[in-house]
């Protein structure tokens, strides 16, 4: 495929219902309010250093119905959750939560980012992102801090009930 062909948006490949799917996901309700002013992209600290992440463009693609392109892309995962755009958006699109809504949909469609699989795995095993092992507790006690007993049971139960554990198995299975 030539570079130009890749850039062409084919109307018959668009999914006009994608925006409604997003609106049904908590955080995505206000996506259709976007009038593409670009305040989000202008304020975005990630956009400033990496052109791949462009919130205005992502919202436009979602509104056009480019479902597969949006959900399978790396760029929805590049939001740093700083809420700068969220605070400044004149249309209250609630962009940070909108990105989370799209990430949640991407996960359901099988596009979870590998870094989040690793994080879910850690939470499932340790209840926290980092293991609280003997070594760590020794270090804590040495500087006068109380030791912490690792308790992962609650998180494991919740992950199992909500099906988050499946995301980890998926990765382990290849």
């Amino acid at each position: 495929m030539s570079e130009n062909e890749e850039k062409i948006i084919k109307v018959n490949e668009l999914n006009p219902n994608f925006k409604y799917e997003i609106q049904a996901q908590p955080g995505g309700e206000n996506i259709t309010r976007c009038f593409a002013c670009g305040t989000c992209s202008a304020a975005c600290p990630v956009r400033e250093v990496n052109e791949k992440y462009n919130p205005r463009k992502i919202i436009r693609m979602a509104l056009l119905g480019m479902k597969e392109r949006v959900l399978s892309s790396d760029f929805i995962w590049l939001c740093s959750s700083c809420y700068t755009c969220y605070e400044r958006c004149p249309q209250d699109v609630r962009i940070t939560e909108l990105m989370n809504a799209m990430k949640n949909i991407a996960v359901k469609e099988g596009y979870i980012h590998p870094s989040f699989v690793a994080q879910m795995e850690a939470l499932n095993s340790h209840g926290r992102l980092y293991e609280m092992g003997e070594f760590d507790n020794k270090k804590r006690v040495k500087v006068g801090l109380p030791p912490i007993e690792e308790t992962a049971e609650d998180t494991k139960k919740l992950f199992k009930q909500e099906g988050v554990d499946k995301l980890i198995e998926f990765k382990e299975g290849g």
Binding site: G27, I112, T151
Partner: peptide, 21 residues
């Protein structure tokens, strides 16, 4: 001692699980 992760990283993955945590 039973406090665990607040749920922040789970928000990107599944909102309900984040709220539960």
């Amino acid at each position: 001692n039973d406090f665990s992760c607040c749920g922040f990283p789970v928000k990107s993955v599944d909102r309900d699980t984040f709220l539960l945590m």
